[in-house]
């Protein structure tokens, strides 16, 4: 059961209906290149927010899990250039790619099972950058620098996937499903135990839960979510290259999640939207090509002033939940107390 008050259900429903109706008002550019893009990257950021908020893990391996799904779907895609030996229809390729990302998530969780906080951040970052370097140096399967092109996605109701409307609606539906999935999972016994592990691993293991299994399970679920996002991102970019999963794309997902706010799953999408808007209009704000300086400054400002992100700012402004909720945001928690 997804726990939301009637008011929250109503708000969620209203937002979804609004998003469904947006194609009536907005030009195609906004639909696909800003909102659609924000949603597919937001899904990857959501997997990070899920791990950070409910598990206490700031994982930088989420882009890597998305990249595994992206590469897997690219290797198996029937339209790929160059066509791989595994080519099959998208109907099989997409689920297998998401499965690969889920397993990768579990593997990352297994490797990092005994580490937390800053060590986890370092290890997941090393894994992520290492994977992109591997993809870059491997010409046999990953096609080196060039990557794999022309991954256009399946046809939906006879229309090409890259049609603005099709892409927008698929991205929207997937994003909403993933969001609801996170809200559902955190109320299941697994999700509750995961939060208990976050708050006190020792006590949770003392009452008989396997801390390691819950950690690995959380990473596998995050891999599943990131994998769904990764497949869509690969369709959005019409292919995948090692540079699209390197250090900066990895950091970009972290930036989205932190700017939006790690304290709520919606923060991921909020952050991804802010990122996409700034990326698109940066040239008119700060001048040609200096997007990275701008986003770096915004990120730095958020981390220095409001570590719980735009979501946290909004929450404080609205005066919602003041004092009712314990601080569970990992960054804010560290801000409050340190070690």
């Amino acid at each position: 059961m997804i726990m939301m008050t009637n008011r929250q259900w109503l708000m969620t429903g209203a937002v979804v209906v609004l998003l469904l109706m947006l194609p009536l008002f907005l030009p195609n550019f906004w639909l696909a290149n800003i909102l659609g893009r924000a949603m597919v990257y937001g899904i990857v950021a959501l997997s990070l927010t899920f791990l950070a908020h409910y598990g206490g893990f700031i994982s930088l391996a989420q882009t890597m899990m998305a990249g595994v799904a992206g590469y897997a779907v690219a290797m198996m895609a029937p339209t790929a250039i160059p066509l791989g030996p595994l080519a099959m229809s998208y109907g099989y390729a997409i689920p297998l790619a998401v499965l690969a990302a889920t397993l990768t998530g579990a593997l990352v969780g297994l490797i990092a099972v005994n580490t937390r906080e800053i060590y986890l951040l370092m290890i997941t970052l090393a894994l992520a950058v290492g994977f992109s370097l591997f993809a870059q140096s491997n010409t046999q399967w990953f096609r080196g620098y060039e990557g794999i092109r022309n991954i256009v996605g399946p046809e939906v109701f006879g229309m090409p996937f890259r049609t603005h409307l099709v892409f927008y609606y698929v991205a929207l539906i997937t994003a909403v499903l993933m969001y609801l999935l996170v809200l559902y999972v955190v109320r299941t016994p697994f999700g509750l135990a995961l939060q208990a592990v976050r708050d006190s691993a020792r006590r949770t293991s003392a009452i008989g839960f396997s801390v390691a299994l819950h950690r690995i399970g959380a990473f596998a679920l995050a891999g599943f979510i990131a994998g769904c996002g990764g497949v869509l991102i690969t369709f959005y970019n019409i292919g995948i290259t090692p540079s699209s999963i390197g250090l900066w794309p990895t950091v970009a997902v972290l930036i989205m999640a932190v700017i939006g706010g790690l304290g709520h799953p919606l923060g991921a999408f909020l952050g991804a939207l802010i990122y996409a808007v700034m990326d698109t209009f940066a040239s008119s704000i700060i001048g040609h090509d200096r997007f990275n300086t701008l986003i770096g400054l915004v990120f730095l400002t958020i981390v220095l002033i409001s570590p719980d992100g735009v979501w946290g700012i909004g929450k404080r402004l609205a005066g919602l939940g003041g004092g009712k909720e314990p601080i569970t945001d990992p960054v804010a928690k560290l801000t409050a107390g340190g070690k």
Binding site: I118, T293, I295, G296, F299, L300, V303, K339
Partner: peptide
């Protein structure tokens, strides 16, 4: 000092600005 994750995030922000 002591807020390790926040420090890591700050240095990530700085590294983006430096590189750019």
């Amino acid at each position: 000092q002591g807020q390790e994750l926040r420090q890591a995030l700050v240095t990530i922000g700085l590294s983006i600005i430096f590189a750019d």
